[in-house]
Amino acid sequence: MQRSIVIKGHTSTYPDPIILEKGQAVLYGKEDTEFPNWIFCKSIITNKEGWVPKQILTTPDAHDIAVVTKDYSAHELTVNQDDILFGLEQLNDWTYCKTENDEYGWVPSFCLTAL
């Protein structure tokens, strides 16, 4: 785990994130232009929508259906400057972190610096 400090606060814009299990089918949508390799998907089971990393999706079929290759949550953390986080995974300019209160979620990597 990489211990980091928040150098720029971030507010989550998705209060009801998409949560997917390995093997779940999604409707494969558009790619984010600000953060490449994030695909806007819709769960076939729950109809929830959200950003999913392209790296955990199979190539979409002729009907734009892809399959998730590992469990995933799009939960974003709301963080303030000087918060301490533990980075668990970096992907496509975002970092999946754990807070000191054991909350897990994504934060844009530019908001963090290593301690």
Rank of each mutant, 00 (worst) to 15 (best):
E31I: 06
P108W: 09
D93V: 01
E103H: 14
V79S: 04
N92L: 00
D93I: 00
A25D: 06
G87R: 05
A66K: 04
E100M: 12
G29S: 03
T69A: 09
I65D: 12
N37S: 13
W51G: 02
I39P: 00
T46G: 11
E34H: 07
P17M: 02
F35E: 08
I44Y: 06
T11Y: 01
D64E: 15
A62W: 01
K48D: 05
T13N: 07
D64Y: 04
E49S: 15
S73H: 10
H63K: 15
K42R: 14
I18M: 07
A74R: 01
G50Q: 07
P17E: 09
V107K: 05
A66T: 08
I84R: 08
S43L: 12
F110A: 14
F86H: 05
Q81H: 12
G23L: 07
F35S: 08
E103V: 10
S43K: 08
L112Q: 05
G87W: 00
P53Y: 06
S4N: 13
L88A: 03
L27H: 08
K98M: 14
S12N: 06
D61L: 14
T59D: 09
H63N: 15
I19M: 08
K42E: 10
A74V: 06
Q81Y: 10
K22L: 02
E100I: 10
S4V: 13
L112S: 11
D93R: 08
S73Q: 10
I45C: 01
F35I: 02
L115K: 13
E100R: 05
N47Y: 15
G9S: 13
S4C: 15
N47R: 15
G9D: 04
V79H: 02
K22N: 10
D82N: 12
Y104R: 08
Y72H: 14
Q55N: 14
V107A: 09
Q24K: 04
L88Y: 05
T95D: 09
L88M: 15
V107F: 05
L20Q: 04
S12Q: 04
H10F: 14
S43T: 13
E76R: 07
P60C: 02
E34L: 10
E100H: 10
T113R: 08
K98W: 02
P36M: 13
C111Q: 03
F110T: 09
G23A: 11
T78V: 04
M1R: 11
E21K: 11
N92W: 00
S12G: 05
I56Y: 01
V52K: 00
V79Q: 03
N101A: 15
T113I: 14
D64H: 06
L20N: 02
R3W: 00
N101Q: 14
V107L: 09
V107S: 02
H75M: 15
L91Q: 12
Q81T: 15
H63F: 13
W51E: 01
L20A: 03
D16A: 09
L88S: 12
T33D: 00
G29Y: 02
T99G: 07
E49P: 07
W51K: 06
K54F: 07
P15T: 12
V107D: 00
